[in-house]
Amino acid sequence: MVGEAGGLARAAVVGTGLIGGSVLFRLRDAGLDVAAWDPDPAARRQVRERGVAAPDEVEEAVAGRHVVFVCGPLPTLPATLARVAAATDDRCVLTDVGSVKAEVATAATAQGLGHRFVPGHPMAGADRAGLGAAAPELLDGAAWVLCPGPTGVDAFRRLAALLVDVFHARVVPMSAPEHDAAAALASHLPHLLAGALAGAVQRSALRDAVLALAAGSFSDGTRVAGGPPERTANMLLGNRDRVLAELIEVGAFLDELAGALRAGDAAALTGRLAEARTARAALRGRAFTSHRREFPAGADPAVELAYLRELGAAGGHLTGCRVAAGAVGYTAHLPATPPLG
């Protein structure tokens, strides 16, 4: 069965919105034994109609499972995690899919769950929400951040193997604070900027004329503004300090553009836009080098953990994780050239 490399053949998903539902149906399609729970009775009914068990009580849904994905709104994660942990075996791997990691990682450590909770964040989404928008292919090949802690390396190995096997994920191992710092620019601030642009159009006296002229640049630049406002607000508030810090940096670059435009300085304006174009081009054109790395499975995990975090911080990812003959082997990929800037 797919996923047995991680020993996680029986799974549950708690919270069946866009991401949770997509995780659920991909696990089902891969042949795993899955169950689900959602606080909304209508959502549980929809899950059952799509052929997946969805008991009325979360404890029944997660009992006897090898892995549980906690997929509710960010503010609910610590309490839901505690409830799920109380109803599962101590060897059951727990993870989440929230877009902010430090807060839930801290809560899990405080609850004594650091050895089996691995904070996670699949970097995929849509401008729609709810189970009706969920699709098993949504997360296929996605970069999937995992944040292993000092006592959770074994749980990380098992979960990483499952994600690679089932989702063909590019697993990005990072510390929770590093994730939140990177995600502020990669994901959270774009939501804020998209909202600002779309909001300015909404307030414009020429709104309908603007929308009539809007083409790819406006549509691409405001796509994420179409998501549920509550979900975006939770994300921004959950990573507020990092988002505000990066907003200052983006504002400084915008000021340079505005200053060049105000001065009629074509060379300066072109130079700043060329700098931006370089980052955009690197998004699609990065080359990677591959390597294999092994560690003794039963040794002190500190060296392994340092390697994993350094890999993710350097822009790398994993496409393989196997434990055999007393050793864990990783298939890893790093950018072929150092990051620009």
Rank of each mutant, 00 (worst) to 15 (best):
Met1Asp: 07
Ala5Cys: 04
Gly6Thr: 03
Gly7Tyr: 03
Arg10Leu: 09
Gly17Met: 07
Gly20Phe: 04
Gly21Trp: 03
Ser22Tyr: 04
Asp29Asn: 10
Leu32Asp: 02
Trp37Cys: 04
Asp40Ser: 13
Ala42Tyr: 05
Ala42Pro: 01
Arg45Ser: 15
Gly51Phe: 06
Val58Tyr: 00
Val62Met: 14
His66Phe: 14
Val67Phe: 06
Cys71His: 01
Pro73Lys: 03
Pro78Ile: 07
Ala79Asn: 07
Ala82Asp: 03
Arg91Glu: 15
Leu94Tyr: 04
Gly98Ile: 08
Ser99Gln: 00
Ala105Arg: 00
Ala107Phe: 11
Ala108Ile: 01
Ala108Met: 03
Gly112Asp: 08
Gly114Arg: 09
Arg116Phe: 00
Pro122Cys: 12
Met123Gln: 00
Ala124Met: 09
Asp127Leu: 05
Gly130Trp: 02
Gly130Leu: 10
Ala133Trp: 01
Ala134Glu: 02
Pro136Asn: 10
Gly141Asn: 13
Gly152Gln: 07
Leu159Val: 14
Leu162Met: 10
Leu162Gly: 05
Leu162Ala: 10
Val166Ile: 11
Val171Arg: 08
Val172Lys: 02
Ala176Met: 07
Asp180Ile: 07
Ala184Pro: 01
Leu189Ser: 07
Pro190Thr: 12
Gly199Lys: 01
Gln202Tyr: 14
Arg207Glu: 15
Ala209Ser: 11
Ala212Leu: 15
Leu213Met: 15
Ser217Gly: 15
Phe218His: 03
Thr222Met: 11
Thr222Trp: 05
Thr222Ser: 13
Val224Lys: 04
Ala225Asp: 04
Ala225Glu: 06
Thr232Tyr: 12
Leu236Ile: 14
Asn239Trp: 06
Asp241Lys: 03
Arg242Met: 11
Val243Ala: 09
Glu246Met: 11
Phe253Thr: 13
Leu261Phe: 15
Ala263Ile: 03
Asp265His: 12
Asp265Arg: 12
Ala266Ile: 04
Ala266Thr: 15
Ala267Asn: 12
Thr270Ala: 13
Ala282Asp: 14
Ala287Asp: 12
Pro296Tyr: 08
Pro296Asn: 05
Ala299Leu: 08
Pro301Asp: 08
Ala302Glu: 10
Glu304Thr: 09
Glu304Pro: 00
Ala306Val: 09
Tyr307Gln: 02
Tyr307Arg: 00
Glu310Asp: 14
Ala313His: 05
Ala314Tyr: 03
Gly320Thr: 02
Arg322His: 13
Ala324Ile: 07
Gly326Val: 07
Ala327Phe: 02
Ala327Val: 15
Thr331Gln: 14
Ala332Ser: 07
Leu340Gly: 11
Gly341Cys: 05
